[in-house]
């Protein structure tokens, strides 16, 4: 069975400021080697907090297909 859930999607113009990592309630975001933010899709609950605080406006919430066993 599959369903979709919202997850954070980081655009390629991320400035790696780290604001999203501070606000994520699940600590699902990390800054990868000072270059961009990455999302742990298993941890992300799609609350959208990161998208709200991102000053560069590069985080979108997108639907992701997940398999439910």
């Amino acid at each position: 069975m599959s369903c979709s859930k919202n997850i954070a999607y980081i655009g390629k113009d991320c400035v790696a400021c780290g604001v999203c990592t501070k606000h994520c309630p699940r600590a699902a975001l990390t800054i990868r080697k000072g270059m961009y933010a990455t999302v742990d899709y298993d941890t992300c609950v799609g609350c959208g907090k990161c998208s709200t605080v991102c000053p560069a406006g590069v985080i979108e919430m997108v639907a992701k297909e997940v398999k439910v066993v």
């Binding site: 400035v15 790696a16 400021c17 604001v19 000072g34 991102c54 560069a56």
Partner: peptide
């Protein structure tokens, strides 16, 4: 937004550039 400065902060741009060059 509160940290809009971070988007165009010269130090942030420089350090991100250095990190990108390193990786």
């Amino acid at each position: 937004k509160p940290r809009s400065w971070c988007v165009y902060c010269p130090m942030g741009t420089m350090t991100q550039g250095i990190c990108t060059l390193k990786n």
